[in-house]
Design a protein around this nucleic acid. Structure first.
Lengths: 206, 206
DNA sequence: GTCTATATAATGATAGAC
DNA sequence: GTCTATCATTATATAGAC
């Protein structure tokens, strides 16, 4: 996945991902993207038309990436695990940075990610007397889990390590287990996840 | 607090607050702020010098606002209550919208708010064997509580009501109680807060 | 596919009249 | 304090050469 191996189009898209993630939509310039990708501004527009087209391409790419990660999480039956999201954090920092910014800025792709995560979360919640309905809890729980991502800059500053790296992600994943109500987690999940995180920290993770 | 009662300077600051909150830093233009405030672009720069000066003024105003709200929360001993933050949400939507954007964009004032909330939260957490240290849990807990604010657009869309209004704020405050680990809440807090929220919904809230 | 102009528009900031 | 020019910069987007 080194940049030399990619086509110019893919390099431009990755550069745009990084720029959008770092500076936001309106703070990003086509010139900046071109410079980061090592091409001319004209080439950027040749491939993506307009700045908004470039943005849409990034959105689509991130949405597909998250869907793939989510699917693999579902296959393993661990979508509800706080550690799962931590693993996703560390899997591709540029994508996560873009997603964080897009969630705050508002974009169709980010909205889709949010909505789909709410749906997935709701499946793992059961209605219970005296509690808010499962849907509302799923919405709030999703926003809370994503909170650490959107605020990764503040979390990383306070933690002293990058949340989007293996160490930060696992520490936050672990702490999340202590902060979330146990009813939200399937039976025995906490112990299982603590094991997985320990193994992950030993370098057996992706 | 109607805009006609305010000095032009205060009106410009409020307009900037709204623009920054809605469009982000780089998406906001001095012309846009001037138009919203009903003054000329020149007057904006007469009062605040540069766009960055305007931004700093908003930052300072919001930081002071949050500190005052936090202090009043401390006086009542309820800073740890999820319902408290819900009350703050509904207290001034424009300020909260600015804060949400600034937390995601990154600004000195927003960073100060985050750091101070972590400090306040840590006071209410006790170290416990088998759990992450109190500081780490405070960081994660703070980022999760603020997650709903930063993602208020998504939360509101899913909820069907504005999170920054009384109904949305109380619904989310209530659901937060069901999502957060009970150890994080002082004894009897949940019941107390549910009462307070019920009263709040009846219109006895601010 | 990739580049170099270039047209056109918008923005931050300044200067000076009232 | 408030406004109307105006400047210099920078941005998107287009056209066309290679």
């Amino acid at each position: 996945m080194r940049s030399e191996d990619l086509t110019a189009r893919a390099r431009i898209r990755d550069a745009a991902l990084a720029e959008f993630g770092a500076r936001g939509v309106s703070g990003t310039t086509i010139r900046g993207v071109a410079q980061r990708a090592g091409v001319s501004p004209g080439l950027v527009q040749h491939h993506f038309g307009t700045k908004d087209g470039l943005r849409a391409a990034c959105d689509a790419h991130v949405l597909e990436y998250i869907r793939a990660e989510t699917r693999s999480g579902l296959d393993e039956g661990n979508i509800g695990e706080p550690a799962f999201i931590a693993e996703v954090y560390a899997s591709s920092p540029p994508v996560m940075r873009y997603l964080a910014r897009a969630l705050a800025d508002g974009s169709p792709g980010a909205a889709a990610v949010f909505d789909e995560l709410v749906d997935l979360t709701e499946r793992y919640l059961v209605d219970s007397p005296g509690l808010s309905d499962a849907r509302t809890r799923a919405i709030v729980y999703t926003s809370m889990r994503l909170g650490a991502l959107v605020l990764h800059g503040h979390v990383s500053r306070q933690l002293g390590v990058d949340l989007l790296g293996p160490e930060g992600a696992s520490r936050v994943g672990l702490a999340t287990l202590d902060v979330v109500a146990p009813e939200l987690l399937p039976d025995g999940l906490a112990a299982r996840v603590r094991d997985a995180l320990a193994r992950y920290e030993q370098g057996e993770g992706r």
